[in-house]
Write a protein that binds this DNA or RNA. Structure first.
Lengths: 131, 131
DNA sequence: ATAATACATTCAAGATTATGAATATGACAG
DNA sequence: CTGTCATATTCATAATCTTGAATGTATTAT
């Protein structure tokens, strides 16, 4: 009988699990990088400067928590936030954490050096930037 | 150079630290038990059915994160949320986590069996109940 | 069919955190 | 100034999480 099983029994535990899933720093960064757009793994890899397997591991956790949805297009898999209100939650948390949110609008298109997928040449990447 | 020091360098890391501090289940329970009121350790101990040292450890973490403020009154120390908006953040998270928030109003006074401090006989304990 | 690309999964070791036990401190009563 | 109560702190260990390495799978190109 481990902690995870016990936690699933109460609603407080569900909130705890949810928050713990999204709040790990690399996951917050993934969420903020995806923002209101779609992003493929190669884009996240290039943008965050992390290895593919590492990104995939966190994407898997976020997918299992229902935070992300995935869509395959040819060889690429595009991830999107299941609920954009998650961005509001993070803004809310940032405010309480005393962090200044410098840019809240949809940011300009980023060149995404290192990612050659079709979407990376089109989409704007981040909705929130925590500088 | 450990992880904690690295995390302190970016704002994303501050949000991550903040969320991770509050999202551990016993800490969420403490926060929800305190709600909009004050609570002494003995009350939390009785209400949550945990040992004193255990409660104090989590209170210490929450205090260091700036989430709680403490006030001494004689032998008792009363804790209060530093910012009541934290309760809104938790409501927000509960919604995104698909958890039904059954009672959002200030709950009735609870008998707090096991806690004899003066406040426990007066205050209402919880603002949110996640059943 | 083979190779290459994009991504997923597994596994184990290291790092971190959570927890219980023991002990310390600070305030008040006597 | 001694004891007791309320709370804080320290410490060691168990549990968990993170991370990197290696490998697997699905899709497309040749």
């Amino acid at each position: 009988m481990n902690m995870t099983e016990l936690q699933l029994s109460s609603n407080t535990a569900k909130v705890s699990d949810f928050l713990q899933t999204i709040s790990a720093q690399p996951r917050l960064e993934i969420i903020l990088t995806i923002g209101a757009n779609e992003a493929c793994v190669c884009h996240l890899e290039a943008f965050l400067g992390q290895r593919q397997a590492y990104i995939s591991q966190h994407l898997m956790a976020l997918r299992e928590a229902g935070v992300l949805t995935a869509r395959r297009e040819g060889r690429f898999i595009f991830y999107r936030l299941a609920d954009l209100e998650l961005l509001d939650l993070i803004r809310h948390a940032a405010r309480l954490a005393g962090v200044s949110i410098d840019s809240l609008g949809v940011s300009e298109q980023i060149s995404s050096p290192g990612c050659e997928c079709p979407k990376c040449m089109v989409d704007a990447p981040a909705l929130i930037t925590l500088v």
